[in-house]
Each structure stands twice: as C-alpha cells, then as structure tokens.
Design a protein around this nucleic acid. Structure first.
Length: 141
DNA sequence: GCCAACGTTGGC
DNA sequence: GCCAACGTTGGC
C-alpha cells in the first residue's frame, strides 16, 4: 500500500516533538473525535509519515516529523483507537501556521483553514514534501 | 431525523 | 481571556 501522509496535532503542554525524541516512540491515545478515530483505525498504516503539529503554541505550527510504527488498535475503551508513532526528526524550530498560510502549494491544507479543529488530518504527498523542506530550512535559520 | 443548546478547540 | 467554528447531545 502506498505511503500516506498525516498531520497530528497536540498541545505542547501535553506532548512535544522533544518528548517524542526522548521517548523514541509513543502511543497516540486520547483522541475523542470520530473522524480522527476513523483515520487511525481504518487508514493509518505502518510506515506512513506524520507532520507533528503543536497547537496552542507560540507560534503554532509543525515542529517535526514522525512515522507510524503500529497501525490502529483499540484503547482500553474499545470505542476509541490509538496508533504508535516513532520519532523521525525535530525541525529545531517551528514551521508556523503563518508560514504555512503563505506558502505556495499548501493552500488546500486542512490545518490552515480557519476553524479546523480536527486533530488528525490527511496531508497530500506534495504538501508533506513542502513542509518537510520548510522544516529543513528552519533548522538552520 | 431535525435542530437548538452546549461544550470544546484553537488562533489570536 | 475572548470568541468563532464546529462536533456532540438530547428533546421533540
């Protein structure tokens, strides 16, 4: 199956890319939204790549990359699903929401649409590549 | 099955 | 802390 690309949001008070770097990997649980649950349960596959997004941050934006290392499996409450993700890379900075909004090729990204609260969103391959490149740049900046 | 009320998210 | 957006709940 072709690799898919995702964006996963979390508030820095809860978890950061540095926490993931320290832990190596983590189980992504506690998502209480049906759409997001369905993505995890039905569509995420091992090897899929993830943009790690810090919400309610200063500034909010993508702070690094992760990948799926375990596909969807039930939480203790089997209504809900979780996946395991592993650390890939920290940008060492943030590709801010502001930057995303002004970058060509990202106009359709769900995350930049005002009011989009979905904590897990599919990302197009082209969008993923663009953000990855921006992240590599921000590292040296 | 509609829809108003309510709660939560998240940018600012 | 404010408030707009939007998902969820519950009365009918």
């Amino acid at each position: 199956m072709a690799t898919k690309y995702w964006l996963m949001k979390v508030e820095p008070e809860v978890y950061t890319i540095d926490d993931l770097k320290r832990d190596g990997k983590t189980n992504w649980e506690g998502v209480r939204n049906y759409k997001a649950r369905n993505y995890m349960r039905d569509e995420m596959q091992v090897g899929d790549e993830v943009l790690f997004y810090a919400s309610n941050a200063d500034p909010s934006g993508v702070t690094g990359l992760a990948k799926i290392v375990r596909a969807g499996y039930p939480e203790k409450d089997p209504t809900w699903s979780q996946v395991d993700i592993a650390f890939v890379k920290s940008f060492g900075g943030t590709v801010s929401l502001e930057t995303l909004k002004h970058t060509k090729g990202l106009e359709k990204m769900g995350v930049i649409r005002k009011g989009n609260r979905l904590s897990i969103q599919p990302v197009a391959k082209s969008e993923f590549e663009i953000v990855k490149k921006l992240g590599a740049t921000s590292q040296t900046a």
